[in-house]
Design a binder for these strands. Structure first.
Length: 492
RNA sequence: GGGCCGGUAGCUCAGCGGUAGAGCAACGGACUUUUAAUCCGCAGGUCGAGGGUUCGAUCCCCUCCCGGCUCACCA
């Protein structure tokens, strides 16, 4: 590894510790308190002169003025100023601080708490030792690390330097914990289903393919957890959920990453109207727990998760926005003709009626769905796993939830008729044969499960990353993922 | 995949045919109450990669790599 000048300097300093018989990476430390604790007890401990030992990373500038020096250290709980006096520390340690310690080194300090004349709570340092030498230099002090690519490639550095970034991931953890609590309290049990699957399904998506050597078998990374979770409903669990990674071999953009975290839950003896209430309550509850309010601000939009969400039918919403009546334009040709007649611009011709409907919806309706909205009753062509509406068999009991123009939830009354499900798979097979590589595969084992009888069931899926985006006001999915997908950096 | 913008010192950025620049950080020096400390001094570069044009290319042209925005595709 080729070192630049700054790295070489730091390596030299490290070697000076070794020359003095000091391990620059000692195996343990003798910290007595966190910085947060020390600050909380500051008044009492500074008055009593209580000796404490703190540990942390030197951040910001080291301000050395002859025989006196200041610096800040930070641990996981907060930061505090170090106050070092040559007279108190002794020549050797003071010189060590001055010459061999750098910004970003991790140190342990022993001393007492004392207020400086300018009123800043500080540790008046009487002992000092190195816990870990930083061989890489820090980024610029004021501008920090701004380059988006570098921040994501070196997320560890981003997290050191940009405290607000750490806060986003603390909130992410809190959101997922709140989601678990919400589901646990309602009797759902958390399960784990296979990531490696011989047949992929549960979403219209193209998969990643991998291979098991010993079995000489191709396997797919799951695109959804749906079909396994429904097997568990067949198995007698009344409520199950899974929070985990899905993998889709598709485009990467502001809202999509090849691997992302989804929550799917299924409730026996429930339907999609129950899922509507569950979705509303879940997001309202989480928003309240995380932000302290059911009203959130996302990218300048004030969004209220408190009231019940607006409900629109897909057919009605498209009719209102474009004048096109899907109940009349029931073939691809008829729909395309209606699109032309309506003078809609920027729409492309799609290979199937269902995809054309999706195109009209996502172009003409979805962007305007800023406040929480449920869009109901999707065409059966787009919903091969959802139950048909009894009075309108061309539509399904399905809804998607939108906030800030983003799809965040997808739910339906689950199709539990094995014969209809088999026909849907066959239809998907024909779509696949005619070039739709995201069509579902025939899953005979899933059909076999349904043949034992699955109770009427409601299911709901939610994009966890997108929910985190909403609640932390982040514009891109990459900013709520610790290690988003990036191209490997070539030699070029 | 298309369009637009970008990649220059550890970091943040200027420069855009004529010896490669600044601020911060670093390094050497002065300094016992700093908070972006201050002052003096000194260093630091395959200017994303490769090719071309030119007397001469960080700069102009071509190809490629990596990113950002956007459109398309896609939940």
């Amino acid at each position: 590894m080729e070192l630049n000048e700054l790295q070489t300097q730091r390596l030299t300093k490290l070697e000076r510790f070794r020359d003095r018989g000091i391990d620059p990476f000692p195996p343990r430390c003798s910290r007595t308190h966190t910085i947060a604790r020390a600050l909380a007890e500051f008044d009492a401990w500074s008055e009593a002169g209580t000796p404490i030992t703190l540990a942390g990373r030197i951040v910001g500038a080291r301000r050395v003025m002859g025989k006196l020096a200041f610096a800040h250290i930070t641990d996981g709980s907060g930061h505090i100023q170090l106050w070092l006096s040559k007279q108190e520390l002794g020549d050797e340690l003071f010189t060590c601080f001055r010459e061999d310690l750098d910004t970003f080194d991790i140190v342990e300090v022993h001393g007492t708490l004392r207020l400086t004349q300018r009123g800043e709570p500080s540790v008046f340092v009487r002992g000092l030792s190195l816990l870990a030498k930083a061989l890489n230099p820090p980024p610029e002090k004021w501008e920090g690390l701004k380059d988006v690519e570098e921040r994501q490639r070196q997320r560890y550095l981003d997290l050191i330097v940009n405290e607000e970034r750490r806060e986003i991931f603390r909130q992410r953890a809190a959101i997922i914990a709140a989601m678990r609590r919400f589901l646990d309290e309602r009797g759902f049990i958390e399960v784990e289903t296979p990531v490696l699957q011989p047949i992929y399904g549960g979403a219209a998506a193209s998969p990643f393919i991998t291979h098991h050597h010993q079995l000489d078998q191709d396997l797919y990374l799951r695109v959804a957890t749906e079909l396994y979770l429904k097997r568990l409903i067949v198995g007698g669990f009344e409520g199950v959920y899974e929070i985990g990674k899905n993998f889709r071999n598709e485009g990467v953009d502001r809202l999509h990453n090849p691997e992302f975290t989804a929550m799917e839950c299924y409730q026996a003896y429930a339907d999609y109207t129950d899922m509507m209430r569950l979705t509303e309550q879940m997001i309202r509850t989480i928003a309240l727990e995380i932000t302290g309010s059911t009203t959130i601000i996302y990218q300048g939009h004030q969004i209220d998760t408190g009231p019940d969400w607006t409900r629109l039918s897909l057919v009605g919403a498209i009719r209102d926005q474009t004048g096109i009546d899907l109940m009349e334009a029931t073939t691809l040709d008829a729909l395309w003709e209606a699109i032309q007649a309506a003078g809609l611009k920027g729409l492309e011709r799609k290979p199937t009626w269902g995809k054309q409907v999706d195109e009209v919806f996502s172009t003409c309706v979805q962007p305007s769905l800023i406040q929480p909205t449920l869009v109901l009753d999707y065409p059966v062509e787009l919903s091969p796993l959802a139950k048909r509406k009894p009075d309108m068999p061309a539509l399904t009991e399905r809804f998607e939830g939108f906030i800030a123009g983003m799809e965040v939830a997808n739910a339906f009354t689950e199709l539990n008729d094995p014969l209809d499900q088999e026909q849907r798979f066959l239809e998907q097979g024909r779509a696949f044969a005619s070039g739709d590589d995201e069509a579902h595969q025939m899953d005979l084992d899933f059909l076999n499960a349904l043949r034992y009888g699955m109770p009427p069931t409601g299911g709901m899926g939610l994009g966890v990353d997108r929910l985190v985006m909403l609640l932390t006001d982040q514009a891109t999915i990459r900013e709520v993922m610790l290690f988003p997908h990036l191209r490997s950096r070539g030699s070029g």
